[in-house]
Design a protein around this nucleic acid. Structure first.
Length: 122
RNA sequence: CGAGUCGGCCGGACAGUCGCGGGGAUCCACGGGAUCCUCGAGGAAAGUCCGGGCUCCACAGGGCAGGGUGCCAGGUAACGCCUGGGAGGCGCGAGCCUACGGAAAGUGCCACAGAAAACACACCGCCGAUGGCCCACGGGCACAGGCAAGGGUGAAAAGGUGCGGUAAGAGCGCACCGCGCGGGUGGCAACACGCCGCGGCAGGGUAAACCCCACCCGGAGCAAGACCAAAUAGGGAGGCCAGGAUGCGGCCCGCAUCGCCUCCGGGUAGGUCGCUUGAGGCAGCCGGUGACGGCUGUCCCAGAUGAAUGACUGUCCCCGACAGAACCCGGCUUACAGGCCGGCUCGAUUU
């Protein structure tokens, strides 16, 4: 683990369909009216993040990109506290109306709760 | 200065910190990572409405069906695009708009009004010369009949103006305008003509209604398509032990099936290519009214694949619109805060 804890390189992301399927198969959930977060443990020694922001969230690509960037940015800052979990964040309709500060707050609450439930928060 | 019109351009800036994708160099405990350098969304990247390249499939030729285009010429790889020109319409003007072939091929459709919507018609009208009667010789009366100028309806009533003509009228005649046909001249052509001749003269609209005419058009799309290739099902070829198992045989031989190895084939997960050097950008010169073309020089300018441009802080201003590449180009259309530059037009003002 020589990786800088502030970075967000490829190994910290879910990339393959099979990795997404693994999380969707047996997830812990945490959700509200803006988004749903799924989590499943891994044995890598660090958390990973996957995003599912569909057209239902917003028909405009610019808005979807903005949401994904904000989520990744928040993950980058918090990843050291999240334990060995794979997260998938699913956006819901109306997410684009949420101010950035509030989005950050919501994300932190979901991630930390799921991390605590798994009992391996660092 | 105000109003307008056409064309071109920009689309927050700078600094710092933490991050992301591509490329290059160097290094390391090399299917990974580190350091440094460098590049990293748009004018519409959008809608996917046209046109092409590219790829695979289909294909002798011709025709039909279906779809598209529709003044002429040019540009282009091509176009439904662009440029120039013509015609018609709008505007004082610069300029703008046009789905702009055919309704004297056929079929269909067209409210209301109006006498009549076409073999035109006669509601109100005009005349009543000719023939009849009366007469104070000016004329009057009634009928037969003639007429389509005026009124009225309508989107449209078979051309307009004037003169002649007549009882009143009428392309009835004439002149000019308009229309059609033939010719001439100019123009590559569309078309034009204040050129000539002929005809008193066709004709309501609608073809983004059917239709006719001319020209054009195979289909599917980068999840196209090509390659590498664990796994797995079954297959083909050769070899191995002349050893074995099972079946058919009383037994031998023999035949069939089974085993192991190699190769071929196959193609799932996954990976690689396609993937960015191109009908390319910029500058200069040349040809062209222009779209555009030619030559020379120069530059390399996103290539991701859950998918990269962001976050935070500070300073400034007029406080930031529409909006995110996904094979690539050429167009069109639509969205858009604010701003810059230039040409031209109209009006006002100033010395």
């Amino acid at each position: 683990m020589a990786r800088t804890p502030q970075g967000f390189p490829r190994p910290a992301r879910l990339t393959r369909p099979s990795e997404f399927r693994r999380v969707f198969a047996h997830p812990r959930r945490s959700s509200d009216r803006y988004l749903t977060v799924l989590a499943a443990p891994n044995d890598l020694g660090h958390p990973r993040l996957g995003l599912a922001i569909s057209r239902k969230v917003s028909p405009r690509a610019v808005e979807r990109n903005r949401i994904k960037r904000l989520i990744r940015e928040r993950f980058r800052h918090l990843q050291a506290e999240l334990g060995n979990l794979d997260f998938v964040v699913i956006g819901r309709h109306g997410l684009t109306q949420l101010p950035a500060a509030q989005l950050n707050e919501i994300l932190e609450r979901h991630w930390k709760r799921l991390s605590r439930q798994s009992g391996n928060a660092s």
